[in-house]
Design a protein around this nucleic acid. Structure first.
Length: 215
DNA sequence: CGACTTTGACCGGCGC
DNA sequence: GCGCCGGTCAAAGTCG
């Protein structure tokens, strides 16, 4: 791909992502899968068929725009109050002025690192979805290495932290189970893969990931 | 033996 | 200033 083409692609994705900053599903989440443009922009495979909720975040939202952030455990309260009408902004609107919940989700360390690296407090794009699954780590075609696990407050299940094993790929994901319904797994991707899933797989000709089958 | 997981320590922002 | 909290680090352990 030429440099210009790559630039155009970047611009396209940027535009696309800016349009989904506050992504809303006004209808039931049987409207699965979410728009493929979004998934493409994040360079991730589509969520599994039993996905029930989808949330998006956008890197343009800064720390000061706390309303844009995803509020971990608070997800539950929103779920019970306004099902199928989720967006990052709405999450926090529903939660009122509880500002800290938003920033907490990103984590202070992450903020620090962003600030060191590039002065501007810009967040990585994030994509979050909820699935009903027995396994915590859904096979999304990429290879992940676990680098931490933490029991977060007010939750019964620990949150696991994963990093993409690919060199120069700094994509992370968090996986946690809903306290309300342990069958539900919340997976949050942060960042965009700079490579294809096939690069991680030794037998890329046989994509065994059930997620890949959605392409 | 390399890749990966586990787990306690540590860090820094935030609220009080 | 202090304690809480979420996220990350890194050494030790485990597995194939």
């Amino acid at each position: 791909m030429s440099q210009q083409a790559m630039l155009n692609q970047e611009l396209f994705e940027e535009k696309e992502m800016s349009q989904m900053g506050f992504f809303t599903f006004p209808q039931t989440l049987t409207s699965y899968p979410p728009p493929f443009g979004c998934l493409k922009a994040f360079n991730i495979a589509p969520p599994p068929a039993n996905l029930t909720e989808t949330l998006f975040s956008h890197p343009k939202h800064r720390e000061e725009d706390s309303a844009s952030d995803f509020a971990g455990p608070q997800l539950l309260s929103l779920h019970s109050s306004t099902p199928n009408l989720w967006a990052w902004g709405e999450v926090n609107e529903c939660l009122g002025t509880k500002k800290s919940s938003g920033d907490d989700h990103l984590g202070v360390s992450a903020m620090k690192m962003k600030r060191i690296k590039g002065r501007r407090k810009v967040r990585e794009p994030r994509f979050c979805f909820k699935t009903m699954s027995d396994v915590d780590v859904l096979d999304d075609g990429y290879k992940w290495r676990k680098y931490g696990q933490k029991v977060v407050k007010n939750t019964q299940h620990p949150r696991s932290y994963y990093r993409c094993t690919q060199d120069n790929c700094r994509v992370k994901k968090r996986v946690e189970r809903l306290a309300e319904d342990p069958r539900m797994v919340i997976t949050t991707y942060e960042g965009r893969h700079a490579h294809s899933p096939a690069q991680d797989s030794e037998d890329s000709h046989h994509p065994h990931s059930h997620l890949n089958n959605f392409f």
